[in-house]
């Protein structure tokens, strides 16, 4: 008896909570979410079909499952949605047109940064190979430091510098 009452109360709560949003009774396999993660949920703010709980995302997951059952490939299924929604729906931007730029920019950044680093390292290496002449201001600072009179405070405020190279 109490069980019945409980289930009735539960049904009421479930009705409030769930409404008609979860009306489907579907079993989905792992590939569905895998493909869903490549698709942007059309009605959500910024979620994938694999993540979202929106009604349309659920429906799209079911479509993916049906098409998988029909033997369609991942590319064909993605193509099905792309045909309807355009490139917008693909979370991985296709490598063409304007969207090619977003793929090329990071590569270009790595190349430019790597090239810049290479040039700098070569320059710094060259600087290190020169025998540094000690004269003028530097010499004066060393002398002052040796005399115990440290004008800039710059020498003593650092950990012991590494031993000078021969």
């Amino acid at each position: 008896m109490s069980r019945l009452v409980r289930s009735l109360r539960l049904a009421a709560v479930a009705g409030i909570l769930l409404g008609s949003a979860f009306a489907q009774d579907i079993v989905l396999d792992s590939r569905v979410f895998d493909i869903g993660n490549e698709l942007r949920c059309p009605t959500c703010v910024a979620e994938s079909v694999g993540e979202s709980n929106a009604a349309i995302a659920r429906e799209m997951r079911q479509i993916i499952q049906e098409q998988l059952d029909e033997g369609r490939t991942r590319a064909e299924i993605l193509g099905y949605f792309q045909e309807r929604y355009g490139d917008w729906i693909l979370l991985s931007p296709p490598r063409r047109g304007v969207l090619l730029i977003v793929w090329l920019l990071p590569v270009a950044a790595v190349l430019v940064a790597g090239g810049g680093l290479f040039v700098l390292v070569r320059r710094w290496r060259a600087a290190a190979d020169e025998v540094a002449p000690v004269a003028g201001e530097d010499l004066a600072r060393v002398r002052a430091a040796l005399a115990g009179d440290d004008p800039a405070g710059a020498i003593s405020a650092e950990p012991a510098p590494p031993a000078p190279r021969p």
Partner: peptide
């Protein structure tokens, strides 16, 4: 009911 047509038409909202 199952929003299939809205998906077929590429509906966002």
């Amino acid at each position: 009911d199952d929003s299939r047509v809205s998906i077929a038409y590429g509906l966002f909202g």
